[in-house]
Simulated assay, not measured.
Amino acid sequence: MMRALALVCSATLLLGLTACTGELPKLVPLPDGVSLLSDQTRLHRKDREIFVRIHNKSDKALRIEAFTLMSDRIPDVKWTGSEDIPPGTEADLEYDMPKAGCGTGFTPTVRLTYRVGDGERQESDAQADDRYGNISHAMDRDCAETTLEEAAHVEVGDPTIVGKGGDSVLHLPVTMTPTGNRDDVRFGGFGSTVLFNQAEGSPADVDIPLVKDPVRLVMQVTPARCDGHALADDKVGRLFDVKVLGDDVGDNASFYLPLTTPQRVTFFDFYRSHCGLD
């Protein structure tokens, strides 16, 4: 047994890896002037791409080779690659956010593997705070969506247009059928977007238990403004919040109402016809 262990250790040493001492490489402090933060761009609100931004305000170049991001709200994320960051610049290292659990905030620890200039590879732990709260909001959406899925089946019907021209209103039927698995979850209402406002009569601010009978709702919207450029450049105008209330759901937690491509097209067609942009 001792001889076998020695052979394993010898092979490990030949590969240039850690010797069989049972000790991991020691972590070193992050170089002065280097800092991290986490964020998500507005263009990626519909998907799960987020990033760690590394600011290099030191006087030496950095080469990032890997990182492991650790948080109590998502499984560990591992990134590998090669990213050079000259002095006085920054770089964004993107990754897809795993499904997040319920919780509060997002304060991950990032174990960074890097080189300073032509130096040896080294590792440091640093926090990559969600400075602007964008990722925390995305995680709260995961929490809200999972919570509502546990409490009810959501079915979105076909949108219809009621009225004509500037007096028209788009109606979208939504049915929530309780599963019986939870008795603490309530529907809190639909949110407006940069393109559409919730119209009078729409369930925008409610507190409806999802316990027994199906809840049949009609979301009603009108354009928030008539602007052809806003419509042409839109990225998030059809992301309607579904507010969820529950014991383990954060304040103002919501997720985006799932819409099919034909449903989304109908919203755009309605905008054009209501505003006379055809």
Rank of each mutant, 00 (worst) to 15 (best):
V218I: 13
G105S: 10
M97L: 15
N56G: 04
M219Y: 09
P214A: 04
A144P: 08
Y256E: 07
P214C: 11
D247K: 15
D92G: 10
K164R: 03
A199E: 05
V242A: 09
Q220L: 00
I85N: 07
V154I: 13
T18V: 00
D118H: 00
S136I: 04
L27R: 13
N197P: 00
T107N: 14
V154S: 01
C9K: 11
L17R: 15
H55S: 15
D96L: 09
Q220M: 11
I135N: 07
R182Q: 07
L239F: 11
D125K: 13
L5K: 09
K243Y: 13
H55D: 15
D205Q: 10
L239Y: 12
C102Q: 09
D269W: 05
H137W: 05
V154L: 15
V116F: 12
P98Y: 00
A91H: 01
C275V: 07
A230T: 07
L112H: 07
Q40R: 13
A128K: 02
R264V: 06
A232D: 12
M2Y: 05
D158W: 10
L277T: 01
M97F: 14
R131Y: 04
T160R: 14
L112S: 02
R182Y: 07
L195S: 02
G165P: 01
G165A: 01
E90M: 08
N197C: 01
Y114N: 03
R73F: 07
Y271M: 05
T113K: 14
N197I: 01
I135F: 04
L210Q: 06
N56E: 02
P31N: 02
D140Y: 12
M2P: 02
D183C: 08
G201I: 04
A126V: 05
Y132F: 06
N181A: 09
D234K: 08
L112T: 03
L30K: 03
E23G: 02
A230I: 07
A144F: 06
V156W: 12
D76V: 14
N181M: 05
P87S: 13
K57V: 03
D59Y: 03
D167P: 00
D47A: 11
M139I: 01
D76P: 14
R141G: 13
V194Q: 13
T175C: 02
G228M: 06
N134Y: 14
L259A: 12
F187M: 02
G228T: 00
T266H: 13
E149H: 10
E150A: 14
P75E: 12
G163E: 02
R272T: 15
L24H: 10
T146Q: 12
D140I: 04
G250Y: 01
F255L: 05
P262Y: 04
V162P: 00
M219E: 10
V249P: 08
M139H: 04
I208H: 06
V244S: 09
A126L: 09
D118M: 00
V154Q: 10
H55G: 15
T18K: 03
T41A: 12
V110W: 14
R225T: 08
P98G: 03
E123D: 12
S202E: 06
L7K: 12
G201P: 08
M1E: 02
M70K: 15
R216C: 00
H137G: 06
K99Y: 00
V194A: 11
A230P: 01
S82E: 12
M2K: 11
D213Q: 04
E65K: 09
F196K: 05
T12V: 14
T266C: 12
D140L: 09
Y132E: 08
S202T: 05
P31V: 07
